[in-house]
Design a protein around this nucleic acid. Structure first.
Lengths: 335, 335
DNA sequence: GATTTTGATGGAAACGGTTCCACTTTAGCC
DNA sequence: GGCTAAAGTGGAACCGTTTCCATCAAAATC
């Protein structure tokens, strides 16, 4: 591989001049510049990223951690981050979870990996992080933002939907449609975002005069398959409910399939509500009524805050984009 | 940030000793080693990746290019690559497309980016690459493999399902179920994998005595939304067909929704077949009959070939894992 | 015409690791 | 106890950039 010295020699100039041409900084005569450019081309010279980062101390790269690579939930979020980054001429390195025991360990390991890689800042999407973990990350790399997790001490770095309010909105919509006997498929007990939305959901149910303790509940892991299994478990207990709230759309898709398989018509026999508002939820049979969480916007704001932090930019940052129920066809009014 | 010299000073040893402790290579006395380890901890020392790569010339990192971050198709493939890499203690840097005009330009830019990042090897998933482009990549970074694209000159580096055979299998399955009037929703004309599977499909139809020119065809872009639109366009032309083949499952999901919306029962009024075998296809209504492409295995083999290339490993590499039709409930037998 | 300013330029030093060689100490052997 | 081999150690040189400073020529100023 050709180095900057090779280029300098070939162009008959010093390395300083070559560097100036590449960075187009500082004065260079037109003649020298063209000779350098020719030499670069002839030698197929490409500056080494590592050698460049070393003296500069900046890599123009943001590290992103995302808990898993599977399904359709994370990709639009990644896409939003990626395109926003590209608009600023910045790059992204992604790390994924699901290699260690817990999401928490994955996220911590991810933060370390991305920091070691010389990322200028970190965007971490992880719900299972404890306060102490976040302190740890802050020491590793003070320039970071959290997505889908909110802790008091780092409020300004946290960007999360208000899951409790969104969960409550789901419950109110179901009550308003006349449902009194409602079942729930939750996500993993570990994930704080799941806990919050279920808490909000049950609290709002209570406000509507429904006893939260009487609500049949099953756990899934947010995957469609787990939603399918959880719905079957629920049906096996005897169907005493007229509506089913799923803690995310992917589990709802699984639950929909389970209902179809069990001969339960949605929404005639059973209403179903999802959560997140993934694109696919518009194409289920029937189209899924869901709580639309503005993930793309939230992610974009988190990123913009991070860029302000890292590069002294002045991008607008909003931290509360409200969720709302998106009425489609999977919830029926009952008497 | 503490450097290796700070650690050496604090531990009262030379930098060579510190380096040996970190790499656990070469002889170090137990006493010195423990002092070094303590100093590392106290100073929170983390070796700089850039500084490490520079003299070594290896980054233990594989670059992966994937055309887009959206939907559910690419994530299982990325996941397979990612976990395989982690098993070998290696890392991954991903670059995505959809930022430039065409997928082809994206892939080329991605290859350059990943090379510049010091990746030891490249795994590129792109269907729109021309032979000359691949030559170009080979010059950039001779250690590369291609996924979902096959060119004669680099046969050993190419890992692609046999789309033509798989397309033919789909057609034969439909014919075997008694269908004679069949419509098709294709992917983009640009993508070679789409062209191959459609070519195989139509050729097999002809073998069954069906005139390929009489087959109604619409184009989509592989997204569910485009499948929906294409199906609507097809229905609008008048429904002269009893079966519909979609060039991927995601478009089939969209087409399924369009059929439901138009009051067309699947499979009673219309049979539908997808392609790829994504997980979600098992959960549609009705469950989707599809051509199962063993993407995870193909990706894994491509990666193993790449690792052999990059690190002199001796991993098994197979280049032909056959596709097969996965019968579910969206295709009906007709008289 | 002397003096200052500006434009171009080359290259040393620095970034933070790894590698390797020279050197000292200790152990092993007869 | 003398000799050799092995273990342990320190640090110079190097990787390929950027940054900065010294130098010099040409242009601008008085």
């Amino acid at each position: 591989m050709a180095t900057i010295r090779d280029v300098a020699k070939r162009a008959g100039v010093g390395i300083g001049t070559v560097s100036r041409v590449i960075a187009s900084s500082g004065p260079v005569s037109a003649d020298a510049a063209s000779r350098v450019r020719r030499a670069i081309e002839e030698l197929r010279f490409r500056p080494s990223h590592a050698a460049r980062v070393l003296p500069k101390g900046q890599s123009q790269t943001i590290g992103v951690f995302v808990p898993l690579v599977h399904g359709a939930f994370y990709t639009p979020i990644l896409h939003a981050i990626y395109t926003a980054l590209r608009e600023h001429g910045l790059h992204m390195v992604v790390d994924f979870g699901q290699t260690l025991e817990t999401e928490r360990q994955d996220a911590l390991a991810g933060a370390e990996f991305l920091t070691d890689r010389g990322c200028d800042g970190l965007l971490i999407m992880a719900t299972a992080l404890k306060s102490a973990d976040i302190e740890h990350i802050a020491q590793l790399q003070p320039k970071f933002v959290l997505l889908n997790r909110s802790v008091p001490h780092f409020r300004a770095n946290c960007f999360s939907p208000d899951h409790q309010a969104a969960g409550a909105a789901a419950a109110r919509a179901l009550c308003a449609a006349g449902h009194r006997r409602i079942a729930v498929i939750e996500g993993p007990a570990r994930s704080s975002d799941n806990r919050l939305r279920i808490r909000g959901f049950l609290a709002a149910l209570e406000e509507c005069g429904i006893d939260p303790d009487g609500v049949p509940r099953e756990h899934g892991d947010f995957s469609p398959e787990s939603g399918h299994a959880a719905a079957e478990a629920l049906f096996a207990r005897g169907r005493t409910f007229t509506a089913l709230f799923c803690a995310n759309d992917e589990m709802a898709i699984g639950a929909l399939a389970a209902a179809r398989h069990a001969g339960i018509a949605v929404p005639q026999d059973l209403s179903m509500m999802g959560y997140d508002g993934i694109d696919l939820a518009a194409l289920t049979a029937p189209p899924l009524t869901t709580v639309l969480i503005p993930w793309r916007q939230i992610a974009t704001h988190a990123l913009q805050r991070l860029l302000n932090l890292c590069y002294g930019m002045n991008l607008p940052v909003a931290s509360d984009v409200p969720a709302q129920v998106l009425n489609r066809e999977s919830v029926a009014r009952i008497a």
